[in-house]
């Protein structure tokens, strides 16, 4: 463990807390893409199946359980409890165009052709594009509530900080995982446009307006 990975995981945890708090407190999931949340649930389910087979550390197990529970809780809020506030008309990204290529790529490019490893690889590829429906929805609605942009900033920062973690681990322990690194860079790059707007607008108290 290193400070970059710890900060990254905390940033991820903060993002999840911001999202759940926003939905619970406002009793509304307006502006939130249910499709992205479905993809995240898929990602964590596929990646954390090793919870039953491998024990890494208490921290690792605890965080995996938190991310699994929170992703399903968010789906429950969006599609059941607060479904009246779900903005279905603006959440129209075709997620099959993200899932299928991730499955194919995971079958073709992986470290080991085993069940858990291919699922892990699928989850890495899918996570790199899982935010697209959410960014697409924000661009369609043309704006995002500031709390939603804080959520996106924390979520984008998590994998961005992981890049520093991978640099540190390569330098300090000659460890690297090219699949995680390439996907992590793609994932972070997808947020760049949003990061720019967040820093130049939201931090100055303005509303986040994405060019539609």
């Amino acid at each position: 463990m290193n400070v970059f990975r710890l900060l990254g995981d905390l940033s991820h945890l903060i993002a999840v807390i911001i999202l759940l708090q926003k939905i619970w407190h406002t009793r509304s999931c307006a502006g939130i893409s249910g499709k992205s949340q479905v993809l995240f649930a898929l990602v964590y389910t596929a990646r954390y199946l090793d919870l039953v087979s491998t024990y890494v550390s208490l921290y690792n197990t605890f965080m995996k359980v938190i991310f699994l529970i929170s992703s399903y809780a968010t789906i429950y809020f969006i599609y059941m409890k607060f479904r009246a506030t779900y903005d279905r008309n603006h959440d129209t990204f075709r997620i099959e165009f993200l899932i299928l290529p991730s499955v194919l790529l995971a079958l073709l490019i992986n470290h080991q052709f085993s069940f858990l490893e291919v699922l892990w690889t699928f989850s890495i590829y899918l996570e790199s594009v899982a935010i697209l429906p959410q960014l697409f929805m924000v661009s369609k609605t043309g704006e995002a509530e500031s709390i939603t942009s804080h959520y996106l900033f924390a979520l984008g920062s998590y994998r961005g900080l992981y890049i520093f973690n991978w640099i540190y681990r390569y330098w300090s322990e000659q460890h690297y995982d090219i699949i995680a690194i390439v996907a992590g860079v793609v994932q972070t790059v997808l947020y760049c446009d949003f990061f720019y707007l967040y820093v130049t607008k939201v931090l100055k108290g303005k509303k986040l307006q994405l060019p539609a």
Binding site: R5, D9, H12, R47, D50, T54, V56, N60, M63, K64, F67, H111, Q112, W120, Y162, N165, Q174, H175, Y176, D177, I178, I179, A180
Partner: peptide
């Protein structure tokens, strides 16, 4: 070493 059998990251 490239990759790692045990994925110790989240």
């Amino acid at each position: 070493d490239q990759n790692n059998d045990l994925h110790d990251e989240l």
